[in-house]
Design a protein around this nucleic acid. Structure first.
Lengths: 219, 219
DNA sequence: TCTTTGATTGAACTTTCATTCAATATTTTA
DNA sequence: TAAAATATTGAATGAAAGTTCAATCAAAGA
Protein backbone atom coordinates (compact mmCIF):
# COMPACT_ATOMS: atom_id res chain seq x y z
CA UNK A 1 0.00 0.00 0.00
CA UNK A 2 1.63 3.15 -1.18
CA UNK A 3 1.40 6.36 0.78
CA UNK A 4 1.87 9.75 -0.82
CA UNK A 5 3.05 12.76 1.10
CA UNK A 6 1.36 15.78 -0.25
CA UNK A 7 2.30 19.40 -0.02
CA UNK A 8 -0.76 20.11 2.03
CA UNK A 9 0.10 17.39 4.49
CA UNK A 10 -2.68 15.08 3.44
CA UNK A 11 -1.55 11.50 3.06
CA UNK A 12 -3.72 9.01 1.23
CA UNK A 13 -3.85 5.93 -0.87
CA UNK A 14 -2.67 6.57 -4.36
CA UNK A 15 -5.51 7.38 -6.70
CA UNK A 16 -3.90 9.80 -9.00
CA UNK A 17 -6.53 10.17 -11.66
CA UNK A 18 -8.95 11.89 -9.33
CA UNK A 19 -6.35 13.18 -6.92
CA UNK A 20 -4.57 15.03 -9.67
CA UNK A 21 -7.75 16.57 -10.87
CA UNK A 22 -8.62 17.64 -7.35
CA UNK A 23 -5.21 19.18 -6.76
CA UNK A 24 -5.45 21.01 -10.00
CA UNK A 25 -8.77 22.47 -9.00
CA UNK A 26 -7.43 23.46 -5.60
CA UNK A 27 -4.56 25.25 -7.27
CA UNK A 28 -6.93 27.04 -9.60
CA UNK A 29 -8.99 28.02 -6.59
CA UNK A 30 -5.93 29.50 -4.90
CA UNK A 31 -5.20 31.56 -7.95
CA UNK A 32 -8.77 32.73 -8.25
CA UNK A 33 -8.91 33.76 -4.60
CA UNK A 34 -5.77 35.81 -5.02
CA UNK A 35 -7.03 37.24 -8.27
CA UNK A 36 -10.35 38.23 -6.69
CA UNK A 37 -8.50 40.10 -3.99
CA UNK A 38 -6.31 41.91 -6.48
CA UNK A 39 -8.90 42.55 -9.17
CA UNK A 40 -11.49 43.79 -6.71
CA UNK A 41 -9.06 46.31 -5.30
CA UNK A 42 -7.33 47.43 -8.47
CA UNK A 43 -9.34 46.36 -11.47
CA UNK A 44 -8.35 44.21 -14.40
CA UNK A 45 -5.78 46.48 -15.94
CA UNK A 46 -4.01 47.74 -12.84
CA UNK A 47 -3.60 44.21 -11.55
CA UNK A 48 -0.42 42.55 -12.76
CA UNK A 49 0.02 38.83 -13.21
CA UNK A 50 3.05 39.28 -11.01
CA UNK A 51 0.81 40.53 -8.19
CA UNK A 52 -1.39 37.48 -8.36
CA UNK A 53 1.53 35.09 -8.62
CA UNK A 54 3.31 36.69 -5.67
CA UNK A 55 0.17 36.55 -3.59
CA UNK A 56 -0.20 32.84 -4.22
CA UNK A 57 3.53 32.34 -3.93
CA UNK A 58 4.22 30.87 -7.34
CA UNK A 59 6.19 31.84 -10.41
CA UNK A 60 4.49 34.07 -12.95
CA UNK A 61 4.72 31.48 -15.64
CA UNK A 62 2.86 28.91 -13.63
CA UNK A 63 -0.33 30.92 -13.77
CA UNK A 64 -0.45 30.04 -17.45
CA UNK A 65 -0.43 26.39 -16.62
CA UNK A 66 -3.87 26.90 -15.08
CA UNK A 67 -5.36 29.77 -17.06
CA UNK A 68 -5.09 30.84 -20.63
CA UNK A 69 -4.70 34.51 -19.86
CA UNK A 70 -5.22 37.20 -17.26
CA UNK A 71 -8.53 38.10 -18.81
CA UNK A 72 -9.53 34.48 -18.57
CA UNK A 73 -9.18 34.56 -14.80
CA UNK A 74 -11.19 37.73 -14.69
CA UNK A 75 -13.92 36.28 -16.88
CA UNK A 76 -14.18 33.16 -14.78
CA UNK A 77 -14.41 35.18 -11.58
CA UNK A 78 -17.06 37.49 -12.94
CA UNK A 79 -19.08 34.66 -14.40
CA UNK A 80 -19.02 32.72 -11.15
CA UNK A 81 -19.92 35.79 -9.13
CA UNK A 82 -22.88 36.70 -11.32
CA UNK A 83 -24.10 33.12 -11.40
CA UNK A 84 -23.99 32.77 -7.65
CA UNK A 85 -25.74 36.08 -7.12
CA UNK A 86 -28.42 35.20 -9.64
CA UNK A 87 -28.96 31.74 -8.20
CA UNK A 88 -29.38 33.21 -4.74
CA UNK A 89 -31.91 35.73 -5.97
CA UNK A 90 -33.87 33.08 -7.82
CA UNK A 91 -33.86 30.92 -4.70
CA UNK A 92 -35.18 33.87 -2.78
CA UNK A 93 -38.04 34.17 -5.22
CA UNK A 94 -38.95 30.53 -4.68
CA UNK A 95 -38.98 30.65 -0.88
CA UNK A 96 -42.36 29.87 0.66
CA UNK A 97 -42.80 33.30 2.20
CA UNK A 98 -44.99 36.28 1.48
CA UNK A 99 -43.19 38.90 -0.63
CA UNK A 100 -42.51 41.36 2.14
CA UNK A 101 -40.97 38.61 4.23
CA UNK A 102 -38.72 37.70 1.34
CA UNK A 103 -37.56 41.28 1.22
CA UNK A 104 -36.97 41.41 4.95
CA UNK A 105 -35.09 38.13 4.87
CA UNK A 106 -32.97 39.30 1.96
CA UNK A 107 -32.04 42.56 3.64
CA UNK A 108 -31.08 40.83 6.88
CA UNK A 109 -29.08 38.19 5.08
CA UNK A 110 -27.32 40.65 2.82
CA UNK A 111 -26.38 43.02 5.62
CA UNK A 112 -25.07 40.14 7.67
CA UNK A 113 -23.02 38.95 4.75
CA UNK A 114 -21.62 42.41 4.13
CA UNK A 115 -20.74 42.61 7.80
CA UNK A 116 -18.96 39.29 7.92
CA UNK A 117 -17.75 38.25 4.49
CA UNK A 118 -14.82 40.12 3.06
CA UNK A 119 -15.05 37.89 0.06
CA UNK A 120 -18.63 38.87 -0.65
CA UNK A 121 -17.68 42.53 -0.58
CA UNK A 122 -14.74 41.91 -2.86
CA UNK A 123 -17.10 40.15 -5.21
CA UNK A 124 -19.38 43.16 -5.23
CA UNK A 125 -16.41 45.36 -6.08
CA UNK A 126 -15.52 43.02 -8.88
CA UNK A 127 -19.00 43.02 -10.36
CA UNK A 128 -19.15 46.76 -9.98
CA UNK A 129 -15.94 47.18 -11.89
CA UNK A 130 -16.93 44.73 -14.53
CA UNK A 131 -20.38 46.18 -15.02
CA UNK A 132 -19.17 49.76 -15.28
CA UNK A 133 -16.26 49.38 -17.61
CA UNK A 134 -16.46 49.50 -21.37
CA UNK A 135 -12.82 48.54 -21.65
CA UNK A 136 -13.34 44.84 -21.14
CA UNK A 137 -12.91 42.19 -23.82
CA UNK A 138 -16.03 41.37 -25.77
CA UNK A 139 -16.60 37.94 -24.28
CA UNK A 140 -16.74 39.31 -20.73
CA UNK A 141 -19.10 42.04 -21.80
CA UNK A 142 -21.45 39.47 -23.26
CA UNK A 143 -21.50 37.51 -20.02
CA UNK A 144 -22.24 40.67 -18.08
CA UNK A 145 -24.93 41.97 -20.40
CA UNK A 146 -26.62 38.63 -20.26
CA UNK A 147 -26.55 38.16 -16.51
CA UNK A 148 -26.47 41.43 -14.69
CA UNK A 149 -30.14 42.32 -14.97
CA UNK A 150 -31.44 39.16 -13.32
CA UNK A 151 -31.39 40.49 -9.74
CA UNK A 152 -33.22 43.65 -10.76
CA UNK A 153 -35.89 41.68 -12.59
CA UNK A 154 -36.37 39.08 -9.89
CA UNK A 155 -36.60 41.59 -7.10
CA UNK A 156 -38.98 43.75 -9.12
CA UNK A 157 -41.29 40.72 -9.35
CA UNK A 158 -41.21 40.25 -5.59
CA UNK A 159 -41.84 43.93 -5.01
CA UNK A 160 -44.76 43.96 -7.43
CA UNK A 161 -46.27 40.95 -5.68
CA UNK A 162 -45.86 42.66 -2.32
CA UNK A 163 -47.54 45.78 -3.61
CA UNK A 164 -50.48 43.63 -4.74
CA UNK A 165 -50.77 42.42 -1.18
CA UNK A 166 -50.38 45.93 0.15
CA UNK A 167 -47.31 45.10 2.21
CA UNK A 168 -44.65 46.82 0.15
CA UNK A 169 -44.28 50.56 -0.37
CA UNK A 170 -45.65 52.20 -3.50
CA UNK A 171 -43.60 53.07 -6.54
CA UNK A 172 -42.44 51.58 -9.79
CA UNK A 173 -41.13 48.08 -8.95
CA UNK A 174 -38.23 48.38 -11.36
CA UNK A 175 -37.20 51.66 -9.79
CA UNK A 176 -37.50 50.31 -6.26
CA UNK A 177 -35.47 47.25 -7.19
CA UNK A 178 -32.86 49.54 -8.65
CA UNK A 179 -32.59 51.53 -5.43
CA UNK A 180 -32.47 48.32 -3.43
CA UNK A 181 -29.54 46.87 -5.32
CA UNK A 182 -27.59 50.08 -5.67
CA UNK A 183 -27.84 50.47 -1.90
CA UNK A 184 -26.72 46.95 -1.14
CA UNK A 185 -23.98 47.12 -3.67
CA UNK A 186 -22.85 50.50 -2.45
CA UNK A 187 -22.72 49.33 1.14
CA UNK A 188 -20.68 46.29 0.26
CA UNK A 189 -18.22 48.39 -1.69
CA UNK A 190 -18.07 50.99 1.04
CA UNK A 191 -17.25 48.28 3.56
CA UNK A 192 -14.70 46.64 1.28
CA UNK A 193 -12.75 49.85 0.83
CA UNK A 194 -12.65 50.85 4.51
CA UNK A 195 -12.28 47.77 6.69
CA UNK A 196 -12.05 49.88 9.82
CA UNK A 197 -14.93 51.26 11.82
CA UNK A 198 -17.76 51.48 9.32
CA UNK A 199 -21.29 52.14 10.56
CA UNK A 200 -23.48 50.00 8.38
CA UNK A 201 -27.20 50.64 8.53
CA UNK A 202 -29.30 48.49 10.76
CA UNK A 203 -31.57 46.13 8.84
CA UNK A 204 -34.57 48.07 10.16
CA UNK A 205 -33.53 51.19 8.27
CA UNK A 206 -33.51 49.42 4.95
CA UNK A 207 -36.60 47.36 5.68
CA UNK A 208 -38.53 50.53 6.43
CA UNK A 209 -37.60 51.84 3.03
CA UNK A 210 -39.28 48.96 1.22
CA UNK A 211 -41.79 47.33 3.54
CA UNK A 212 -44.82 49.13 4.92
CA UNK A 213 -44.54 49.82 8.63
CA UNK A 214 -47.37 47.65 9.89
CA UNK A 215 -45.63 44.66 8.31
CA UNK A 216 -42.36 45.42 9.92
CA UNK A 217 -42.58 44.02 13.42
CA UNK A 218 -39.43 42.61 14.94
CA UNK A 219 -39.13 38.85 14.67
CA UNK B 1 -5.55 97.63 -35.79
CA UNK B 2 -4.51 94.06 -36.07
CA UNK B 3 -7.03 91.31 -36.53
CA UNK B 4 -6.27 87.72 -35.66
CA UNK B 5 -8.06 84.82 -37.22
CA UNK B 6 -8.48 82.13 -34.64
CA UNK B 7 -9.16 78.47 -35.05
CA UNK B 8 -12.51 78.88 -33.42
CA UNK B 9 -13.45 81.59 -35.85
CA UNK B 10 -13.36 84.38 -33.30
CA UNK B 11 -11.58 87.47 -34.52
CA UNK B 12 -10.48 90.07 -32.07
CA UNK B 13 -8.05 92.79 -31.26
CA UNK B 14 -4.66 91.42 -30.35
CA UNK B 15 -4.20 91.09 -26.62
CA UNK B 16 -2.12 88.00 -26.45
CA UNK B 17 -1.19 87.93 -22.82
CA UNK B 18 -4.73 87.17 -21.71
CA UNK B 19 -5.89 85.66 -24.97
CA UNK B 20 -3.13 83.09 -24.90
CA UNK B 21 -3.92 82.16 -21.37
CA UNK B 22 -7.57 81.81 -22.24
CA UNK B 23 -6.87 79.66 -25.27
CA UNK B 24 -4.60 77.50 -23.23
CA UNK B 25 -7.32 76.96 -20.67
CA UNK B 26 -9.85 76.16 -23.37
CA UNK B 27 -7.52 73.57 -24.77
CA UNK B 28 -6.99 72.07 -21.36
CA UNK B 29 -10.74 71.99 -20.91
CA UNK B 30 -11.15 70.09 -24.18
CA UNK B 31 -8.62 67.55 -23.04
CA UNK B 32 -10.24 67.19 -19.66
CA UNK B 33 -13.68 66.70 -21.16
CA UNK B 34 -12.36 63.95 -23.38
CA UNK B 35 -10.43 62.44 -20.51
CA UNK B 36 -13.51 62.43 -18.30
CA UNK B 37 -15.41 60.55 -20.94
CA UNK B 38 -12.67 57.98 -21.36
CA UNK B 39 -11.65 57.61 -17.72
CA UNK B 40 -15.23 57.32 -16.53
CA UNK B 41 -15.90 54.52 -18.97
CA UNK B 42 -12.63 52.65 -18.74
CA UNK B 43 -10.72 53.75 -15.69
CA UNK B 44 -7.26 55.24 -15.41
CA UNK B 45 -5.26 52.26 -16.56
CA UNK B 46 -7.42 51.04 -19.41
CA UNK B 47 -7.55 54.52 -20.90
CA UNK B 48 -4.70 55.24 -23.27
CA UNK B 49 -3.32 58.67 -23.98
CA UNK B 50 -3.95 57.82 -27.59
CA UNK B 51 -7.68 57.47 -26.84
CA UNK B 52 -7.86 60.91 -25.30
CA UNK B 53 -5.80 62.52 -28.04
CA UNK B 54 -7.89 60.95 -30.76
CA UNK B 55 -11.09 62.06 -29.09
CA UNK B 56 -9.88 65.65 -28.98
CA UNK B 57 -8.32 65.33 -32.42
CA UNK B 58 -4.74 66.15 -31.57
CA UNK B 59 -1.42 64.37 -31.64
CA UNK B 60 -0.49 62.27 -28.65
CA UNK B 61 2.52 64.38 -27.89
CA UNK B 62 0.51 67.56 -27.61
CA UNK B 63 -1.26 66.32 -24.51
CA UNK B 64 2.07 66.72 -22.74
CA UNK B 65 2.18 70.34 -23.66
CA UNK B 66 -0.82 70.84 -21.39
CA UNK B 67 -0.43 68.15 -18.75
CA UNK B 68 2.54 66.63 -17.06
CA UNK B 69 1.24 63.08 -17.26
CA UNK B 70 -1.82 60.93 -17.68
CA UNK B 71 -2.19 60.62 -13.96
CA UNK B 72 -2.05 64.37 -13.72
CA UNK B 73 -5.18 64.69 -15.85
CA UNK B 74 -6.87 62.08 -13.73
CA UNK B 75 -5.90 63.82 -10.51
CA UNK B 76 -7.14 67.17 -11.74
CA UNK B 77 -10.46 65.67 -12.82
CA UNK B 78 -11.00 63.85 -9.56
CA UNK B 79 -10.02 66.86 -7.48
CA UNK B 80 -12.37 69.14 -9.39
CA UNK B 81 -15.20 66.62 -9.16
CA UNK B 82 -14.85 66.12 -5.43
CA UNK B 83 -14.54 69.86 -4.80
CA UNK B 84 -17.66 70.65 -6.78
CA UNK B 85 -19.62 67.90 -5.10
CA UNK B 86 -18.49 69.02 -1.67
CA UNK B 87 -19.20 72.68 -2.37
CA UNK B 88 -22.70 71.80 -3.50
CA UNK B 89 -23.36 69.76 -0.38
CA UNK B 90 -22.07 72.52 1.86
CA UNK B 91 -24.27 75.02 0.04
CA UNK B 92 -27.20 72.71 0.64
CA UNK B 93 -26.45 72.73 4.34
CA UNK B 94 -26.53 76.53 4.39
CA UNK B 95 -29.83 76.89 2.56
CA UNK B 96 -32.52 78.61 4.61
CA UNK B 97 -34.83 75.61 4.70
CA UNK B 98 -35.86 73.12 7.33
CA UNK B 99 -33.81 69.92 7.17
CA UNK B 100 -36.44 67.75 5.54
CA UNK B 101 -36.93 70.35 2.83
CA UNK B 102 -33.21 70.33 2.19
CA UNK B 103 -33.38 66.61 1.71
CA UNK B 104 -36.36 66.84 -0.60
CA UNK B 105 -34.70 69.57 -2.61
CA UNK B 106 -31.49 67.60 -2.86
CA UNK B 107 -33.24 64.47 -4.06
CA UNK B 108 -35.19 66.34 -6.70
CA UNK B 109 -32.16 68.21 -7.88
CA UNK B 110 -29.95 65.14 -7.97
CA UNK B 111 -32.48 63.01 -9.83
CA UNK B 112 -33.01 65.77 -12.36
CA UNK B 113 -29.29 66.08 -12.85
CA UNK B 114 -28.89 62.35 -13.29
CA UNK B 115 -31.71 62.44 -15.81
CA UNK B 116 -30.25 65.26 -17.86
CA UNK B 117 -26.52 65.54 -17.37
CA UNK B 118 -24.37 62.88 -18.93
CA UNK B 119 -21.38 64.71 -17.58
CA UNK B 120 -22.61 64.45 -14.01
CA UNK B 121 -23.06 60.73 -14.38
CA UNK B 122 -19.63 60.36 -15.89
CA UNK B 123 -18.27 62.28 -12.95
CA UNK B 124 -19.97 59.88 -10.55
CA UNK B 125 -18.37 56.99 -12.40
CA UNK B 126 -15.02 58.69 -12.13
CA UNK B 127 -15.32 59.26 -8.40
CA UNK B 128 -16.57 55.74 -7.95
CA UNK B 129 -13.56 54.36 -9.74
CA UNK B 130 -11.16 56.60 -7.93
CA UNK B 131 -12.62 55.91 -4.50
CA UNK B 132 -12.66 52.15 -4.95
CA UNK B 133 -9.23 51.56 -6.38
CA UNK B 134 -6.13 51.00 -4.34
CA UNK B 135 -4.02 51.07 -7.46
CA UNK B 136 -3.87 54.84 -7.77
CA UNK B 137 -0.78 56.95 -7.20
CA UNK B 138 -0.35 58.18 -3.65
CA UNK B 139 -1.11 61.83 -4.34
CA UNK B 140 -4.54 61.00 -5.78
CA UNK B 141 -5.31 58.76 -2.87
CA UNK B 142 -4.54 61.57 -0.46
CA UNK B 143 -6.91 63.89 -2.27
CA UNK B 144 -9.62 61.28 -2.15
CA UNK B 145 -9.15 60.31 1.47
CA UNK B 146 -9.27 63.93 2.42
CA UNK B 147 -12.39 64.87 0.48
CA UNK B 148 -14.64 61.92 -0.05
CA UNK B 149 -16.27 61.84 3.36
CA UNK B 150 -17.59 65.38 3.26
CA UNK B 151 -20.96 64.56 1.65
CA UNK B 152 -21.60 61.79 4.15
CA UNK B 153 -20.79 64.03 7.08
CA UNK B 154 -22.77 67.01 5.84
CA UNK B 155 -25.83 64.98 5.00
CA UNK B 156 -25.67 63.17 8.32
CA UNK B 157 -25.84 66.57 10.03
CA UNK B 158 -28.94 67.52 8.07
CA UNK B 159 -30.54 64.17 8.80
CA UNK B 160 -29.79 64.47 12.50
CA UNK B 161 -31.32 67.95 12.56
CA UNK B 162 -34.41 66.64 10.79
CA UNK B 163 -34.75 63.84 13.29
CA UNK B 164 -34.64 66.42 16.07
CA UNK B 165 -37.58 68.12 14.41
CA UNK B 166 -39.32 64.80 13.90
CA UNK B 167 -39.53 65.20 10.12
CA UNK B 168 -36.92 62.69 9.08
CA UNK B 169 -37.12 58.93 9.52
CA UNK B 170 -35.41 57.24 12.43
CA UNK B 171 -32.05 55.52 12.28
CA UNK B 172 -28.39 56.31 12.67
CA UNK B 173 -27.76 59.49 10.67
CA UNK B 174 -24.40 58.25 9.39
CA UNK B 175 -26.02 55.06 8.17
CA UNK B 176 -28.91 56.89 6.53
CA UNK B 177 -26.50 59.25 4.82
CA UNK B 178 -24.56 56.28 3.59
CA UNK B 179 -27.67 54.72 2.06
CA UNK B 180 -28.61 58.06 0.55
CA UNK B 181 -25.34 58.56 -1.25
CA UNK B 182 -24.87 54.99 -2.34
CA UNK B 183 -28.32 55.14 -3.90
CA UNK B 184 -27.68 58.40 -5.70
CA UNK B 185 -24.28 57.30 -6.81
CA UNK B 186 -25.58 53.94 -7.94
CA UNK B 187 -28.36 55.51 -9.96
CA UNK B 188 -25.99 57.88 -11.70
CA UNK B 189 -23.66 55.05 -12.58
CA UNK B 190 -26.53 52.86 -13.70
CA UNK B 191 -27.72 55.62 -16.00
CA UNK B 192 -24.23 56.33 -17.29
CA UNK B 193 -23.68 52.76 -18.35
CA UNK B 194 -27.02 52.27 -20.12
CA UNK B 195 -28.05 55.42 -21.89
CA UNK B 196 -31.12 53.74 -23.36
CA UNK B 197 -34.47 53.33 -21.65
CA UNK B 198 -33.64 53.42 -17.96
CA UNK B 199 -36.46 53.72 -15.44
CA UNK B 200 -35.08 55.99 -12.76
CA UNK B 201 -37.05 56.21 -9.55
CA UNK B 202 -39.45 59.06 -9.10
CA UNK B 203 -38.30 61.59 -6.52
CA UNK B 204 -41.22 60.55 -4.33
CA UNK B 205 -39.82 57.07 -3.89
CA UNK B 206 -36.56 58.33 -2.52
CA UNK B 207 -38.13 61.12 -0.49
CA UNK B 208 -40.37 58.58 1.24
CA UNK B 209 -37.29 56.66 2.25
CA UNK B 210 -35.87 59.57 4.20
CA UNK B 211 -38.65 62.00 5.02
CA UNK B 212 -41.62 61.10 7.19
CA UNK B 213 -44.85 60.85 5.23
CA UNK B 214 -46.74 63.75 6.78
CA UNK B 215 -43.93 66.05 5.63
CA UNK B 216 -43.98 64.80 2.14
CA UNK B 217 -46.84 66.61 0.49
CA UNK B 218 -46.42 67.49 -3.16
CA UNK B 219 -45.26 71.01 -3.75
C1' DT C 1 14.97 1.51 -10.52
C1' DC C 2 13.48 3.76 -14.89
C1' DT C 3 10.17 6.14 -17.52
C1' DT C 4 6.54 9.14 -18.09
C1' DT C 5 3.69 12.69 -16.79
C1' DG C 6 2.65 16.87 -14.73
C1' DA C 7 4.24 20.93 -11.84
C1' DT C 8 7.33 24.59 -11.47
C1' DT C 9 10.76 27.99 -12.43
C1' DG C 10 12.75 32.06 -14.30
C1' DA C 11 14.64 33.97 -18.15
C1' DA C 12 13.59 35.40 -22.97
C1' DC C 13 10.42 37.31 -26.18
C1' DT C 14 7.08 40.58 -27.68
C1' DT C 15 3.85 43.96 -27.54
C1' DT C 16 1.98 47.86 -25.81
C1' DC C 17 2.12 52.12 -24.12
C1' DA C 18 3.69 56.64 -21.66
C1' DT C 19 6.79 59.97 -22.42
C1' DT C 20 10.37 62.63 -24.95
C1' DC C 21 12.09 65.15 -28.64
C1' DA C 22 13.59 67.13 -32.91
C1' DA C 23 11.37 69.19 -36.57
C1' DT C 24 7.60 72.03 -38.51
C1' DA C 25 3.89 75.25 -38.50
C1' DT C 26 1.57 79.10 -36.64
C1' DT C 27 1.03 83.20 -34.25
C1' DT C 28 2.85 87.43 -31.93
C1' DT C 29 5.80 91.11 -31.47
C1' DA C 30 8.86 94.57 -32.96
C1' DT D 1 9.06 91.45 -42.83
C1' DA D 2 12.17 89.07 -39.36
C1' DA D 3 12.71 87.19 -34.86
C1' DA D 4 10.74 85.10 -30.98
C1' DA D 5 7.47 82.49 -28.81
C1' DT D 6 4.07 79.08 -28.88
C1' DA D 7 1.46 75.19 -30.78
C1' DT D 8 1.64 70.96 -33.10
C1' DT D 9 3.18 66.74 -35.14
C1' DG D 10 4.69 62.12 -35.40
C1' DA D 11 8.46 59.27 -34.92
C1' DA D 12 11.93 57.50 -31.44
C1' DT D 13 12.80 55.86 -26.84
C1' DG D 14 12.43 53.07 -22.98
C1' DA D 15 10.11 50.78 -19.54
C1' DA D 16 6.63 47.72 -18.10
C1' DA D 17 4.09 43.70 -18.35
C1' DG D 18 1.67 39.61 -20.68
C1' DT D 19 2.92 35.46 -22.55
C1' DT D 20 6.02 31.65 -24.07
C1' DC D 21 9.42 28.29 -23.45
C1' DA D 22 13.33 25.36 -22.47
C1' DA D 23 15.02 23.37 -18.52
C1' DT D 24 14.42 21.34 -13.89
C1' DC D 25 11.95 19.03 -10.24
C1' DA D 26 8.58 15.75 -8.12
C1' DA D 27 5.55 12.19 -8.16
C1' DA D 28 3.42 7.93 -10.10
C1' DG D 29 3.32 3.75 -12.56
C1' DA D 30 5.63 -0.35 -14.22
Amino acid sequence: MKVQSKKDGVSSVARSQEQNEKMRLERKEQIMAAALREFSAKGLYATKIKDIAEYVGMAQGLIYHYFKSKEDIFTELVTDALDKMNDAVIELGKMPLPPHEKIKAAIKQLLYTIETSERFNQTCCLINQAANSTALPANIKEVIDQKRDVPYRELAKIIAAGQQEGTVVAGDPQALALVFWTSINGLAIYKATRQNNVTLPDAGILINMFVKEQNNGKN
